[in-house]
Design a protein around this nucleic acid. Structure first.
Lengths: 117, 117
DNA sequence: TCCATAATTCGAGAATACTCGAAATAACGA
DNA sequence: TCGTTATTTCGAGTATTCTCGAATTATGGA
């Protein structure tokens, strides 16, 4: 992940409604939730939520899948993991090899093997 | 870490200058850098930088240590790690035990054992 | 004490972001 | 085709954030 992508992702998550949306979708798992369901759950107006979902989509923290009239939004933990790796890059005295593999465990060992995200 | 703390930290890092500052301090290691050195390195005016350093300090991503006339700023990776843990909480279908211990490895195993952060 | 250096605080202007109501688009079923 | 539901786009108003010059505080040395 490049700096600009990380910056966009961090800015996206640094806003209360969007952080709530992302965490809700993380909990919802691979099925995700429709925009309407998120709107109801968080009590955010549909048009406002749509703006936020657009922001999360643009930086790939979330992806959209249309299903009939509804659109399911699903958290993309691979992006989350890239972000984490980026943030901890050079955290061990400029030797990223020490931290990066551990960051990979988030998805490769734990999450994807248990619930498939 | 609580949601509000995570939100503040994410908002702090979601701004280019502050992200640059934080990453620079991560690379600088436990010695940190003086405000002036950061100002020179990133080409940001001292008063503007001071505002950003204040923002990073307020959410504990950075801590300050005065040394004579200078003030050293040091990245606090423990906060970073708490943030990561918070973001990935419930990423394994509501079973945080699967992910949280792995998040802990960032500091307990890798970083603190090698350079003491 | 007086001066120089290091950093912060203050106040204001410009730019950006958030939210909303209204209108538009997309998909389904009768 | 028409109506209904789900979601997005548009435009504007309000609020927040960023940056800056100027002034202020803090420290150390002559």
């Amino acid at each position: 992940m490049e700096k600009e992508d990380a910056l966009n992702a961090l800015a996206a998550l640094g806003q209360e409604t969007r952080l709530d949306v992302f965490r809700l979708l993380v909990k919802a798992g691979k099925e995700g939730m429709t925009a309407g369901a998120v709107s109801d759950a968080l009590n955010v107006r549909p048009n406002t939520l749509s703006t936020h979902l657009g922001a999360l989509s643009r930086c790939a923290l979330v992806r959209a899948e249309r299903d009939g009239r509804s659109i399911h939004y699903i958290a993309d933990l691979a992006t989350m993991q890239s972000l984490v790796t980026f943030l901890l890059r050079d955290c061990c005295g400029g030797n990223p090899d020490l931290c990066a593999p551990i960051a990979n465990l988030f998805t490769t060992v734990s999450c994807s093997d248990t619930k498939g995200l």
